[in-house]
Design a protein around this nucleic acid. Structure first.
Lengths: 118, 118
DNA sequence: AATACTTATCGCAATATTGCGATATGGTAT
DNA sequence: ATACCATATCGCAATATTGCGATAAGTATT
């Protein structure tokens, strides 16, 4: 007798069983969950001007790799790119940054410091 | 003529080229970068008492899967487990939670809202 | 010792992520 | 048109993550 899993999604995150909020927080956290992306975000903030391919020089990563991290940050929405040929000017998306600030602030402040095991 | 990559680390995050701080932020962000872990953290906060295997009932995930997420959260240090046979009582680690609050607060507040492309 | 209970770990399958060389793309300048 | 420049995308290799059934490990109870 063989039982098949009702929806064979092996190894894939089961987003459908979580709330919108939980999925969004997880997505926003992905922006910060790789040191290269942290570095990119810090650079974009430090030079208020949006360094573009200069990122490739600053980081010791191949251009393709940097481009891919930028793509992921764009997918999340936390940065935006303005085409300014032949360059692309990247910068923080203020609205999504604010969303992240609220989201992380909300969850991080919700812990009052009370635990049972201490 | 063939050039070999000086350190053939294909597909592995190059932590050595980033700062301690950047790597730590990335690691702390991993605690929040999966909806199941967000849900677990929220549950641990909501019931100040540390629900243990109750997490398995609350979440629609197999016990093994929940256990693995707990292990990851423990590795990061943001939760701690107190063995209370036959159960294990999990709760937020206040010190590391505070570290996360500072770390995310620091980077999230460092953006002043100024961008070049808007 | 045997049983019951909870949690951790193993092993596997599948998908996701990371990194990068090579190449394509979209635009300017000559 | 051609050459050039910066960036995006492709394709590959390798590692990491996710999910879960099965099993092991640890302890309390009988």
């Amino acid at each position: 007798m063989v039982f098949l899993c009702y929806v064979c999604s092996m190894g894939v995150t089961r987003t459908e069983i979580f709330t919108e909020q939980q999925n969004r927080i997880a997505d926003l956290a992905k922006a910060f969950s790789h040191p290269a992306r942290v570095a990119i975000l810090q650079l974009l903030i430090a030079r208020k001007a949006c360094v573009c391919g200069d990122l490739v020089d600053e980081l010791e990563l191949a251009q393709a790799t940097v481009s891919q991290h930028l793509k992921e940050l764009k997918r999340i929405g936390i940065i935006q790119g303005e085409i300014n040929p032949p360059r692309v000017c990247y910068c923080i998306n203020p609205a999504v940054w604010e969303e992240a600030r609220r989201a992380f602030g909300s969850i991080l402040e919700s812990f009052e410091g009370v635990t049972c095991c201490n």
